[in-house]
């Protein structure tokens, strides 16, 4: 396989206080995959993303984005945090939140102008939220808030997208809209990494998967490694047997 490596994680270890949350993670994510990170609660899925993005300082290990440290490659990376991580009663509009996606390329002090506004409007259009552009964000539904977050990342026009549980608490139509956008991103050659909870939809939505439970259990193509063996290793129960029929 001559695929380029988009993200390479070596020996990554993260701990909160004394307890290790991620233990010696080695991970290679090839360019152009749509990858799910799955694992039980507390497995360190969000932490892995945050450590790759430099939000959390690891105890040991390194992360390379296209062979360079994250700090040098920031502009290639976009991030969609968990919807619940911000206060949606903040006094601002949907368009304004999406505009925040342009702040990184603007850098310090420079104000967003017409060019940035146009990009933000296009992103709103892509997530089908253009008619809500002036809406106060507290008046958006959970699904609409998630779309706004996605639009904010799309504005960054990145090569790699990290998303933390984008399907959490959204209805079916939003879930479909989001997965269609993610598939489009993959078609355009982008790499998308998603923290995901719904095991049923993994084979349908993703082509790449990483099983995580503090340690990395397995990583690879869904068709090769998404099996009972790995599910059992990750979740500690025989998934198929444990579900009441």
């Amino acid at each position: 396989m001559t695929q380029k490596i988009a993200i390479q994680v070596d020996d990554l270890t993260v701990a909160y206080n004394y307890k290790p949350v991620l233990w010696d993670i080695d991970l290679v994510i090839p360019e152009g995959v749509l990858m799910a990170i799955v694992g039980p609660n507390g497995a360190g899925k969000s932490t892995l993303i945050k450590a790759i993005l430099g939000i959390i300082d690891p105890i040991a290990g390194s992360v390379a984005i296209y062979g360079e440290p994250y700090k040098k490659q920031r502009k290639l990376v976009a991030y969609v945090p968990q919807k619940g991580s911000v206060d949606w009663d903040f006094p601002t509009t949907a368009l304004d939140v999406v505009m925040m996606g342009t702040y990184g390329s603007l850098g310090w002090i420079k104000r967003p102008g017409q060019k940035q506004k146009k990009a933000a409007l296009e992103a709103l259009e892509k997530v089908d939220m253009l008619s809500f552009k002036s809406r106060q964000i507290s008046q958006l539904s959970g699904g609409q808030q998630q779309r706004i977050f996605l639009a904010r990342a799309l504005v960054q026009n990145a090569s790699i997208y990290f998303m933390d549980e984008p399907f959490q608490g959204v209805d079916a139509s939003t879930e479909i809209a989001i997965i269609n956008i993610l598939k489009e991103l993959r078609k355009a050659g982008k790499t998308v990494v998603v923290v995901h909870h719904d095991l049923q939809t993994v084979p349908e939505y993703f082509d790449w998967v990483t099983f995580l439970n503090v340690k990395k259990i397995a990583t690879g193509a869904v068709k090769d490694i998404f099996n009972d063996d790995n599910l059992t290793k990750t979740y500690g129960i025989n998934y198929k047997v444990a579900v009441n029929k």
């Binding site: 430099g54 939000i55 920031r74 945090p81 925040m100 990184g104 002090i109």
Partner: peptide, 22 residues
Amino acid sequence: LLFWKEFKLLLFDSDYANTLGF
């Protein structure tokens, strides 16, 4: 006035601000 954009970003979503390089 100078850091308006940065203040707003930090107030709303500081982790995101971090990933953008601020």
